[in-house]
């Protein structure tokens, strides 16, 4: 279980996150929605250690993450797929995937091969293009690659930052449905940050609505999807 308590992250005295608290249950998809600037990306970046929390706590089961380094957080089973299809474009597709599992090479070489095979089965197009430079991939393929890089580390918690950003609706629906399948089949816990509330709430179990760095609503995803007054007030449609 991911438990966030009174979490505040400040940038030069601007509070991007202002004392937020919520929980994400294991094996489920929790989505964080909200308008631009609500603090969604800051939340994910604080969980993965890229930003330092000013105060408050982030607990993944018994581990307190706020004092850990990015590398240690990843090694404890929390993988982030950053915004903007973050792959290393000058490396090949295969090298990008290898990179994600590199830290496990010594401890679990056999499983690494299995994990690599699994992501290629999940995204066959990546297998076909494994020797090409990641920079030559389409936006959707790059997002698949970014997710694959995270998956070969065998995460328990997957942090997805706007996976549908800049993608055609069909492609983003495909990617979201693959993530949904992973969660249901393997018990992966997913924290999905999305601007596209409809897509996200359709697959999520639980919804968190962020507004100006604070939690404006915390309820089952189906209820949030049905609450048109809430949407009108915070998302503008």
């Amino acid at each position: 279980m991911l438990a966030i308590k009174n979490l505040t992250t400040e940038f030069a005295s601007v509070k991007a996150l202002n004392g937020i608290s919520f929980q994400a249950k294991p094996g489920l998809i929790t989505t964080v929605i909200g308008a631009n600037g609500a603090g969604k990306s800051t939340l994910l970046r604080t969980i993965s250690g890229l930003e330092k929390a000013t105060s408050g706590s982030i607990k993944w089961f018994d581990e307190e993450l706020t004092q850990m380094s990015v590398e240690s957080i990843v090694r404890s089973g929390i993988a982030q797929v950053p915004e903007g299809h973050a792959v290393i474009s000058q490396l090949s597709v295969a090298e990008n995937i290898e990179l994600g599992g590199l830290f496990r090479k010594r401890i679990a070489r056999g499983d690494l091969a299995i994990a690599t095979k699994e992501v290629y089965e999940l995204f066959p197009i990546l297998y076909e293009r494994r020797n090409e430079q990641a920079g030559s991939l389409s936006g959707g393929e790059r997002q698949m690659l970014a997710i694959s890089r995270a998956l070969v580390s065998r995460p328990k918690l997957l942090l997805l930052d706007e996976p549908s950003l800049g993608l055609a609706p069909l492609i983003s629906a495909q990617i979201i449905s693959i993530v949904n399948g992973l969660c249901r089949e393997t018990g992966l816990t997913v924290l999905l940050v999305e601007q596209n509330a409809n897509t996200a709430l359709a697959v999520a179990d639980h919804g968190i609505l962020l507004a100006l760095g604070e939690v404006a609503a915390d309820m089952p995803a189906s209820e949030m999807a049905a609450d048109s007054a809430l949407r009108a007030a915070y998302l503008g449609y």
Binding site: L50, E71, A79, V87, L91, L99, L102, S153
Partner: peptide, 15 residues
Amino acid sequence: RASALNPEVTRLSGI
């Protein structure tokens, strides 16, 4: 090579 090209993605890969 990866950390020279993109330190953030490399750190997020646990390196």
